[in-house]
């Protein structure tokens, strides 16, 4: 009997474990040279155009970078080293994601601040609402309810 009670919990544990394993396996990045090149092309911005990544841009510099990335990967450079090379040539503007220094901190931090402030506001608002006392019924209110009940009771008796 006791073991039957455990069955749903075991099933839940199995489902959660399988879900976590699938998530971990699927979120592991593909590190083949072609996949790394594609990823870097999307992480770098076209240095001479607005709002386009290297992958999307057809500017000569973007095409040169697209050709250059596989050469650097073949030469054994890491993704960080490749990004650092382009930053050294075109400054941090070439990075599609904000850096973790300077103005970049604001870009990373603002969503977190907004979530914290929003959550705090909801918690505070709920606590305030729950603290608001319920209105107590006055004698007049009770009288209205009593009269209404009497009226309904009388109508039922007449109709019987």
């Amino acid at each position: 009997m006791k073991s039957r009670k455990l069955v749903p919990w075991i099933a839940l544990a199995v489902v959660v474990t399988v879900g976590i394993v699938v998530l971990v396996v699927r979120s592991r990045p593909d590190n083949s040279p072609a996949a790394r090149a594609r990823r870097l092309e999307h992480q770098l911005a076209c240095p001479v155009c607005e709002g386009q990544s290297i992958a999307d841009s057809n500017a000569p510099q973007s095409r040169a970078i697209r050709d250059d990335i596989p050469r650097r990967i073949a030469a054994g450079q890491s993704d960080a080293e490749i990004r650092a090379y382009y930053v050294s040539r075109y400054t941090e503007r070439i990075l599609e994601t904000p850096s973790n220094s300077g103005l970049g901190i604001v870009a990373w931090g603002l969503p977190a601040v907004a979530v914290i402030l929003g959550s705090a506001s909801i918690v505070i608002a709920v606590r305030r609402w729950s603290r608001t006392p319920r209105l107590a019924a006055t004698d007049a209110d009770e009288g209205i309810v009593r009269r209404a009940r009497d009226d309904v009771g009388g109508e039922n008796e007449d109709g019987r």
């Binding site: 240095p47 001479v48 000569p60 510099q61 095409r63 040169a64 970078i65 050709d67 250059d68 050469r71 382009y86 040539r89 075109y90």
Partner: peptide, 14 residues
């Protein structure tokens, strides 16, 4: 031909 010198200079056009 590979654009490597252009990238090393950090050219932004011509």
């Amino acid at each position: 031909p590979s654009g490597s010198a252009s990238l090393d200079f950090g050219t932004t056009g011509q």
